[in-house]
Amino acid sequence: MANPAAAPLSVLRRFHHALRPAGELLALAALFASLATLWPAAWRPAEKPAPAAAASAYSITVTEARTAPVFKTALWLDARPAAAFAAGHIPGALRLTEAEWEPLFLPLIDQWTPGTPIVVYCDTIGCQASEQVAARLRRELAFEQVFHLVGGWQTWNQNP
């Protein structure tokens, strides 16, 4: 007669053979990861300056921008060239780019109420301009709530 306790036991026994090799592979992965971490920084290829934590902490998605109450009053900044801005932009957005910082920054300060969050966007998922403008604004305004929009204008348009 079949033992009812034997079924789960047989499943465990089935995987028992794989546990040891899986452990060996895990140990090998841990060894490689440790060696890669200990690899002297001087030997590594040049890395991008943007740290991961900073990038994720200041990025917001279109859904968050549209739904979170904190962004209802946000000041929107367009970091794209003038032609792209003229072709279409988020309603109420002002332009600010690294290349045209001097002429565009002061009018922006007139429009901004201190303490109001700022969201910067550029064209699409691969663009870096919004991250760079947002980082510079955080430094120059000494204000942390300056975010960049993941996916930019293109994602905003695709998610009305």
Binding site: A18, R20, P21, G23, L25, A29, A30, A33, T37
Partner: peptide, 26 residues
Amino acid sequence: HTLPWLEAVTALGLLVGRRWLGGAWL
């Protein structure tokens, strides 16, 4: 810093097969 190495080692286990195949599939 760890997961990509786990992916690579798992791929290695699948390629080598033999006694590591079950562990690699796990």
